[in-house]
């Protein structure tokens, strides 16, 4: 697939669509999309609710090479339904990862790169979105033992809901300054817990807690860098070359429990306090 000329001049990764993001991280000319828009597998649940569908359901899956190594690359399109996952979008991700597990078990060598731009479950397909996320998570836990699974959160949407849990399962988690990572979206927390707990309109506050820089400083992600496409591409290559890590972030059980049991919860937390709490214990 060739580049459209206008976006070739634009080198900010954050501004690229899902298909273009994959094209930028893959070795030139190696991208082969699976279940393309021309396969017309649209959501079976949106039209009946009066919602205009998109031909790729907001997820692009492709095989290709990075640095000469075979990979499956998956990108969520944050501009369609907020990057939310419904049945088809979720099945594209889970199914591709399941095939990658199968191929690796059969002796092939295929790593994974995931580009998240998602609010989590698509509420119009609620339980099927949630089910698909569980299936994606299962596949990642199986695949990361065999191959590096590199996840990238660059923004503008960020990575929320059940997919933030998915991000926490990956071998390596990379963010840019524009990226945000959190379980519950700001509005949901404000609705559930009140504006005193979480002010969804206070952008500096939210960025301070969930933005890429804070997540890196608190050890919840592996790297933090700028959003120039060359830089993003180099970082993805660098982490793929690291291979399967000795341990995963999700296995730091004892140190996490020790740290969390010693938090002063009498006072509300700040981003500075969070940094101190993480600086005290062993890094995750």
């Amino acid at each position: 697939m060739s580049n459209a000329q206008d976006s070739r001049l634009n080198t900010n990764f954050v501004e690229q669509g899902a298909r273009k993001r994959i094209e930028y991280v893959l070795d030139s000319g190696s991208m082969r999309e699976l279940v393309t828009p021309f396969d017309r597998v649209i959501s079976p649940w949106l039209e009946v609710q009066g919602i205009v569908p998109q031909f790729d359901d907001g997820v692009v899956v492709a095989r290709g090479a990075i640095d000469g190594k075979s990979v499956i690359a998956i990108a969520i399109d944050g501009s369609f339904q907020g990057g939310s996952l419904g049945e088809v979008a979720g099945a594209k991700i889970a199914g591709a990862l399941e095939l990658a597990v199968e191929a690796n078990q059969a002796g092939e060598s295929i790593a994974a790169v995931l580009m998240f731009e998602t609010g989590g479950v698509r509420l119009q397909e609620a339980n099927l979105g949630l089910a698909a996320i569980a299936e994606i998570q299962s596949a990642i836990v199986a695949l990361r033992k065999l191959q590096p699974v590199v996840a990238l959160i660059t923004g503008p949407v960020g990575c929320f809901g059940g997919m933030s849990i998915t991000a926490g399962l990956c071998s390596y988690l990379l963010m840019t300054r524009e990226g945000r990572l959190g379980l519950n979206g700001p509005q949901v927390i404000e609705q559930e817990a009140g504006v005193g707990e979480y002010d969804s309109r206070d952008r500096p506050f939210i960025w301070g807690l969930t933005g890429g820089e804070q997540r890196y400083t608190t050890g919840l992600v592996d790297d933090f860098f700028g959003s120039d496409v060359i830089e993003v591409r180099n970082k993805v290559q660098e982490y793929l070359r690291k291979g399967v890590p000795d341990t995963f972030r999700s296995e730091a059980i004892q140190s996490s429990l020790d740290r969390l049991k010693n938090v002063d919860t009498q006072h509300q937390i700040t981003s500075e306090a969070a940094r101190e709490i993480f600086a005290k214990g062993a890094s995750l």
């Binding site: 849990i165 926490g168 379980l183 817990a193 807690l209 999700s250 059980i253 938090v263 937390i269 995750l284």
Partner: peptide
């Protein structure tokens, strides 16, 4: 759990565990 501490201290990572 919905809360400020939860987000600040990485509840997504706790659930991932």
């Amino acid at each position: 759990a919905y809360g400020r501490r939860e987000e600040a201290l990485g509840i997504h990572q706790a659930l991932a565990a």
